[in-house]
């Protein structure tokens, strides 16, 4: 298993890492049992994500995808951010090893969760806008199958 240079760069020097005091939307996905937790903080002004940070417990790919996802949505409108797919995050990172694809799914879901939280705080039901947020369940994509 080898990571691309982009992945290594975002892992070694993650962008937008830490908490965001002025955040008005915070989303967390994943669970520690499975191995990765991503928390995304967004600051929304006039429908635009003016600032975004993250905290991640996870592998190199999980940290790199979080970092890349924050870069890709910073300054974008909520609509644009919601359109960001895990495939786009992976592409921006020059790809991920197959077993790490779910880490990019988590990044996509973390953005949705943060946006959902923002709407909830605004008194708006997020479900029709954001859709269902999938919590990662590794057991269906565990490649081992032996135990």
């Amino acid at each position: 298993m080898a990571y691309s240079e982009r992945v290594m760069d975002h892992f070694a020097n993650p962008r937008n890492v830490g908490e965001l005091a002025e955040a008005n939307g915070i989303g967390e996905v994943g669970n520690s049992k499975c191995g990765d937790i991503m928390r995304m903080y967004i600051k929304v002004e006039d429908n635009v994500i003016t600032d975004v940070t993250f905290k991640t417990f996870g592998c190199g790919a999980a940290i790199a995808t979080s970092s890349m996802a924050t870069e890709l949505i910073k300054g974008k409108t909520i609509d644009e951010a919601l359109k960001l797919t895990n495939a786009a995050v992976m592409e921006a990172l020059d790809g991920l090893p197959p077993v790490k694809v779910h880490c990019s799914v988590l990044a996509e879901q973390a953005i949705k969760a943060a946006v959902a939280d923002y709407y909830t705080r605004q008194g708006i039901d997020p479900t029709p806008i954001v859709g269902k947020i999938e919590d990662c369940d590794h057991h269906d994509h565990c490649g081992c199958g032996e135990h």
């Binding site: 499975c34 191995g35 190199g60 790919a61 999980a62 590794h138 081992c144 135990h147």
Partner: peptide, 22 residues
């Protein structure tokens, strides 16, 4: 760690000695 094993479950050895997944 699961993440290094190529599968997504942490080491069977560490689980066998009773460590929680996380």
């Amino acid at each position: 760690s699961a993440c290094t094993s190529g599968s997504l479950d942490p080491s069977h050895v560490l689980l066998a000695i009773g460590l929680p997944h996380e």
